[in-house]
Design a protein around this nucleic acid. Structure first.
Length: 490
RNA sequence: GCCCCCAUCGUCCAGCGGCCUAGGACGCCUGCCUUUCACGCAGGUAACACGGGUUCGAAUCCCGUUGGGGGUACCA
């Protein structure tokens, strides 16, 4: 059960570039989103797996906002990301760190690398780099043009890391085993932009060390940047081990990495559609991992204790909304009625398909249990009760066509029977049932066929909550009025 | 092109050399239950990419092929 740890000491980089070793909790992970978009499914899964790993072994789950690219970062999104994590229930430890506020640490690291010759200034423009690459034969990448020019700081210049020309850089990945890169395939990459801000690799290496991170759990799309981070750590003489675990990507139906613009994957959108956080988290946990006993739907606490980072899959997982919906339906049905009513609030009051003044919570509460066992998404709730809160039912054309037009003869007879029977029957579900189904018995017609015209007349649709309970809530006068209206429309 | 990773039902997981005539879940199909729908219940459909090894024995180990994905930025 014990997670792989790096021991009780963690390298800590001081502002002046020197290193100190500090004791720390055995495991400390971080989720490090870049505020260039909303939190999406992939990020949520990465956060979840980090969180599960930390919570399971009593470690710490930190947050770090990677906003070193001022051009792309959108500060207003940071709060959206926090709120999405809160919605998911992934609580974090300590105060979130913003990389943009730690420029001095990054600068100190760059200075140190410059001082030891592990990095150098470069005045090549991207265009020049590309032009030389094409002249060489199309192999992309920087050619080390400025490596021995001993340039000083200057306008428009960047700092590049001097990658060893020989040897290889490898690391042990908890999920993938040993991953190795030949250094000759790594170009001298930029660590400090010409505008003075640090690049991702540099800030990442420095901050992981400074925050005492022990395990880096992230998407596989970042696996190729790992050797660069390791090279930087080595050049900075950062001690202590960093264990990596690269998670398989979550993919779309074309088996490509989920993309914010191409795929519909914002966590916020799923909140809006009526998914429960518990269902989302539970489903996400089954993407790339499965419990040993094959029981997929279960409390988070159990997942926390069963989860093993080492058991995570290596291959990409398709985000199957159908299966998510099934999970959601299960979670909705497991709610208490009160919880269900509370969870439905925004669909009852905000974008409800009825005039606000006609809505009555007490009436809804009567129907709620019947609705609860039928919906897979909370956004479906209004569709089951709108007939009560609208002055007239919204007639569904297909339903009307099928039941009231094609079955016009039966519909007319049933309506007459209902009108007569409902006029003085006991106004309870049982009383209504007896009054209507006496027609089915007398004429030897299935109850299903008999209830259909009444349902369509009163609710507008051929599907919905149980009919007699619905009528009971609607009331005698309104029911008779709608039955008459439908009869005239026949 | 080059680098890295991956490969079991349509999909998500189980399987870690014999318990596999490959198990569970979603989906789909059948039936039952039933006032519609949904739930529930009982069934069914459907996979070890291919080729070589290793081994008494391979879905499981090794190599290759093919296929897929990720990366290849002064994004992260």
């Amino acid at each position: 059960m014990a997670p792989t740890t790096s021991g009780a000491f963690t390298a800590h980089l001081r502002g002046d570039g020197t290193i100190e070793l500090v004791t720390s909790s055995p495991v400390r992970v971080r989720f490090a989103p870049s505020p260039t978009g909303y939190l999406h499914i992939g990020g949520a899964r990465t956060a979840l797996f980090n969180w599960l790993f930390a919570r399971q072994c009593g470690g710490e789950f930190m947050l770090r906002i990677e906003d070193t690219d001022s051009e792309r970062s959108r500060p207003e999104l940071i709060d959206v990301i926090f709120r999405s994590l809160e919605w998911l229930g992934l609580d974090w430890d300590g105060t979130p760190v913003h990389q943009s506020e730690r420029g001095h640490l990054h600068q100190a690291a760059v200075d140190k690398l410059l001082g030891t010759g592990a990095a150098y200034w470069c005045d090549c423009t991207p265009d020049a780099v590309k032009a030389r690459a094409e002249a060489r034969g199309g192999t992309p990448g920087y050619d080390g043009f400025c490596a021995e020019r001993n340039l000083e700081n200057g306008d428009g210049r960047v700092v590049r890391f001097r990658v060893p020309s020989a040897g290889s850089t490898a690391f042990e990945d908890l999920i993938r085993g040993r991953v190795s890169f030949e250094n000759e395939n790594l170009e001298d990459f930029v660590i400090l932009r010409s505008n003075g801000t640090p690049m991702f690799h540099l800030a990442n290496a420095v901050d992981d060390a400074d925050q005492g991170i022990t395990h880096v759990v992230r998407g596989e799309d970042l696996i190729n940047v790992t050797p660069k981070v390791i090279l930087i750590r080595e050049a900075l003489a950062i001690e202590g081990d960093l264990t990596f675990a690269h998670l398989p990507l979550i993919v779309n139906e074309k088996r490509q990495k989920l993309s914010k613009r191409r795929d519909d994957v914002s966590v916020g959108d799923y909140i809006d559609r009526g998914y429960l956080a518990e269902a989302m988290v539970n489903y996400l946990a089954t993407l790339g991992w499965g419990p040993p006993d094959d029981i997929e739907i279960r409390p988070l606490a159990e997942i926390v204790s069963l989860f093993r980072l080492e058991d995570v899959n290596k291959s990409g997982a398709f985000f199957d909304v159908k299966k998510l919906q099934h999970f959601n339906g299960e979670y909705i049905r497991n709610l208490s009625t009160t919880q269900f009513v509370n969870s439905s609030t925004r669909w009852l009051y905000e974008d409800a398909p009825w005039p606000a003044e006609r809505f009555d919570i007490a009436t809804f509460e009567v129907l709620a249990p019947l609705v609860q066992e039928r919906v897979k998404l909370l956004s479906e709730v209004p569709g089951y009760v709108d007939f009560v809160f609208n002055a007239d039912p919204i007639i569904d054309d297909d339903s009307w066509q099928k039941v009231m037009v094609k079955g016009a003869e039966l519909a007319a007879a049933v309506l007459d029977h209902a009108l007569a029977g409902f006029a003085d029957c006991e106004w309870t579900a049982a009383g209504l049932e007896a009054a209507l189904f006496s027609y089915a018995e007398q004429n030897e017609i299935s109850k299903g066929k008999v209830q259909a015209p009444v349902r369509v007349s009163v609710t507008g649709r051929s599907v919905g909550p149980p009919l007699f309970e619905s009528l009971e809530v609607l009331g005698r006068d309104e029911t008779l009025r709608r039955l008459n209206a439908a009869k005239e429309r026949l």
